[in-house]
């Protein structure tokens, strides 16, 4: 404890008084990955967002392991286009990596079609998977996915579902897969952030909201929201009473998950990719990372280059089918 306070004061003092960067302590543990210089993670978001917090937390445990500083390069803009261009142009030496979400894949099929393709990159490691769930205000008549589907069937689709992103976004596609499975239609209302969706559900402006667990968790614990169902193979540890979609009889592909993975430029040596993946998965075992990951409700994944590349292929096929069905593909 005493040591902790001391360390804090030293670190803080350094940052405050001299504007110094806190230099990572370089005593490398044994990992196969020995980068020759600082490792840059290019992100498609601004500082302070979910992806940014993920990489910064990971970097804390990764830095001492690889004995090199981790530099975070925030490159927002173009729905990931600026970041992907940066990673694609980099040398495949493992010193420039990117972090991706499902948005990267739906983007490659729609607005960025022809600009980027999965083959432009090496898909190195999957770190987090984050199932999506549907929720309603605590006093709502809707208590389950079945209630939701039945209400939509009775009212000819007049149920408002608020989710993140426009038609064709990750969460919208999940809703469309449910439409395909049940034959009913819903009314998609696009929002630009998860807190906006939660506020709209709490205020009664939409009937049902879509979100990943993390940002919504405290509202469940406070008894303000209730879960209708999670799109996953198993129930969530933190909300054990919420059923999965499959348990309620809706057989929708459960590999449709929000993900955070690490990718790099194409033509990266497979052995290097494996080393990077191992280092990242090892860094995820650190206590600080585990604490963060559990608090934000995400699940860990240990997919290395081979599994992740296969996963990406599957995701692309699934997304393409869904976007095709929704009439959102240009050709």
């Amino acid at each position: 404890m005493k040591f902790d306070t001391l360390r804090r004061s030293i670190l803080a003092g350094a940052a405050m008084a001299a504007f110094l960067h806190v230099a990572p302590v370089a005593h490398a543990q044994e990992t196969g990955w020995q980068p020759a210089g600082p490792v840059t993670f290019a992100l498609h978001t601004r500082p302070g967002g979910g992806t940014d917090v993920f990489v910064r937390t990971l970097a804390q445990s990764l830095e001492p392991m690889i004995g090199q500083p981790v530099v975070i390069n925030n490159l927002p803009g173009g729905g990931g286009a600026v970041q992907m261009a940066n990673v694609r142009a980099a040398a495949p030496d493992g010193l420039t990596l990117g972090v991706n979400t499902v948005t990267h894949f739906t983007g490659m099929l729609t607005n960025l079609q022809g600009v980027f393709a999965p083959d432009d990159f090496a898909w190195i490691a999957l770190s987090q998977v984050d199932p999506i769930l549907f929720f309603a205000e605590i006093n709502s008549d809707l208590n389950s996915m079945t209630d939701l589907v039945e209400r939509a069937r009775a009212n000819e689709g007049q149920v408002n579902i608020g989710g993140f992103g426009p038609v064709g976004s990750m969460q919208n596609i999940a809703m469309e897969m449910l439409e395909g499975e049940t034959g009913v239609t819903f009314n998609w209302v696009a929002f630009e952030s998860t807190p906006d969706i939660i506020a709209a559900v709490l205020g009664g402006h939409v009937d049902v909201g879509v979100a990943n667990l993390g940002p919504a968790l405290s509202f469940f614990e406070a008894g303000r929201l209730k879960g209708l169902g999670v799109l996953g193979d198993e129930r969530l540890d933190t909300l054990p009473e919420m059923q999965t979609w499959a348990e309620q009889g809706y057989d929708v592909d459960t590999s449709w998950l929000q993900v955070r993975g690490v990718f790099g430029p194409a033509d990266m040596d497979p052995a290097l990719q494996q080393q990077i993946a191992d280092a990242i998965h090892q860094a995820m075992q650190a206590e600080a990372y585990q604490q963060y990951a559990r608090a934000s409700g995400v699940l860990d994944s240990d997919f290395g280059p081979q599994e992740y590349t296969e996963f990406v292929d599957g995701l692309m096929t699934l997304a393409e089918e869904q976007l095709q069905a929704a009439g959102l593909l240009g050709n």
């Binding site: 500082p47 910064r56 807190p195």
Partner: peptide, 23 residues
């Protein structure tokens, strides 16, 4: 836990880093 401005949205990120989820 709902940010009232762009800056408070970034503050949520700052709290998340320390494992605190405003709500």
């Amino acid at each position: 836990g709902i940010p009232g401005s762009a800056t408070t949205a970034v503050l949520i990120g700052a709290l998340n880093i320390h494992g605190i989820q405003p709500g």
